[in-house]
């Protein structure tokens, strides 16, 4: 008989004995009998009404377990689990993909702008400061006295009331 445990010895979990019939019913339902054993079982089912009745009762219970209505998880399961994860982790458990994507976009844009500016600098060089040139040129043309009396940054003009 196709068995890997002794039906007449107590289960090592202390569950007691399993009758030969019960073993056969299980093995038959599980497809654990050899072809020859299966044929003998089928013959016995036909010939032995007591055996057949007992088997039918056994099969009804096993089928009953197999056909128990399946229970569906509540529809808000996923949302509730994620909420609990966020609470437990202080909001840092998940990699926040939306912020991550947004941050990545801005980082890429910033780097691209820097590259463009650097390229422009390398190709065109530093633009001349026209305003400074004009000031210096004008400064050279001013008469010496005017230059001395020209108000300096942070200093009051010469005609201010503070001056004697």
């Amino acid at each position: 008989m196709a068995t890997d445990f002794n039906i007449s010895s107590p289960d090592h979990d202390g569950a007691g004995e399993l009758s030969e019939r019960e073993y056969l019913f299980n093995a038959y339902l599980e497809g654990n009998l050899t072809e020859e054993e299966r044929e003998k079982f089928d013959e016995r089912l036909e010939d032995d009404s007591s055996f057949r009745r007992e088997y039918e009762e056994f099969r009804e219970v096993v089928d009953g377990v197999r056909n128990l209505p399946r229970q569906s998880a509540p529809p808000d399961m996923s949302r509730n689990v994620r909420r609990r994860i966020r609470i437990r982790s202080g909001g840092s458990f998940f990699a926040d993909t939306s912020i991550q994507h947004s941050r990545n976009f801005h980082e890429v844009a910033a780097v691209a702008m820097m590259v463009v500016m650097a390229s422009t600098y390398l190709v065109m060089g530093v633009p001349p400061d026209r305003g400074l040139e004009n000031v210096e040129r004008k400064g050279l043309e001013l008469p010496p006295r005017s230059r001395e009396s020209a108000p300096r940054r942070g200093h009051a003009p010469s005609d201010s009331p503070d001056q004697p």
């Binding site: 890997d4 289960d11 019960e22 093995a27 056994f58």
Partner: peptide, 21 residues
């Protein structure tokens, strides 16, 4: 072990059958 799975399953069903009866 798989043998334990099988033996427990067989016994579970037998107990269940007794309960249902």
């Amino acid at each position: 072990p798989e043998g334990t799975v099988k033996s427990r399953l067989y016994r579970a069903r037998s107990k269940l059958k007794s309960y249902v009866q």
